[in-house]
Deep mutational scan, measured.
Amino acid sequence: GLPEGWEMRFTVDGIPYFVDHNRRTTTYIDPRTG
C-alpha cells in the first residue's frame, strides 16, 4: 500500500494522482517510486 497519510485518487480523465494528507499536497509521482 501507500505510505501513511497518502491516498490515491483519479482525475476526471482517469489519471491516478496521489494526495499527501501530511503536507496537504498532491502529486502525479507515486511516492513509492519517487
Rank of each mutant, 00 (worst) to 15 (best):
G1R: 13
G1K: 14
G1A: 15
L2S: 03
L2M: 10
L2R: 01
P3H: 04
P3W: 05
P3S: 05
P3V: 04
P3M: 04
P3L: 04
P3Y: 04
E4V: 11
E4P: 14
E4W: 10
E4Y: 09
E4S: 12
E4Q: 11
E4D: 13
G5R: 04
G5A: 04
W6S: 01
W6M: 03
W6L: 04
W6H: 01
E7I: 05
E7F: 04
M8H: 02
M8D: 00
M8P: 02
R9L: 13
R9F: 14
R9A: 08
R9G: 06
R9M: 09
R9P: 00
R9V: 07
F10Y: 12
F10L: 10
F10T: 08
F10Q: 05
T11G: 11
T11V: 00
T11A: 05
T11H: 03
V12P: 14
V12G: 10
V12I: 14
D13F: 08
D13P: 01
D13W: 07
G14N: 09
I15V: 12
I15M: 08
I15T: 12
P16A: 09
P16V: 12
P16G: 06
P16E: 06
Y17T: 05
Y17L: 09
Y17W: 01
F18E: 01
F18Y: 10
F18S: 00
F18M: 00
V19M: 08
V19W: 07
V19A: 03
D20V: 03
D20F: 06
D20W: 03
D20T: 04
H21Y: 09
H21M: 11
H21T: 11
H21L: 11
H21A: 08
N22F: 10
N22I: 15
N22H: 10
N22K: 13
R23P: 03
R24M: 14
R24F: 09
T25E: 15
T26V: 15
T26H: 13
T26F: 14
T26L: 14
T26M: 15
T27Q: 11
Y28L: 15
Y28K: 10
I29V: 11
I29T: 10
I29K: 09
I29F: 10
D30K: 00
D30F: 00
P31Q: 03
P31A: 01
P31H: 02
P31Y: 02
P31E: 03
P31I: 02
R32E: 07
R32M: 06
R32Y: 06
T33Y: 08
T33E: 12
T33I: 14
T33N: 12
T33L: 13
T33D: 12
G34W: 12
G34T: 13
G34D: 15
G34L: 15
G34F: 14
G34A: 14
G34P: 13
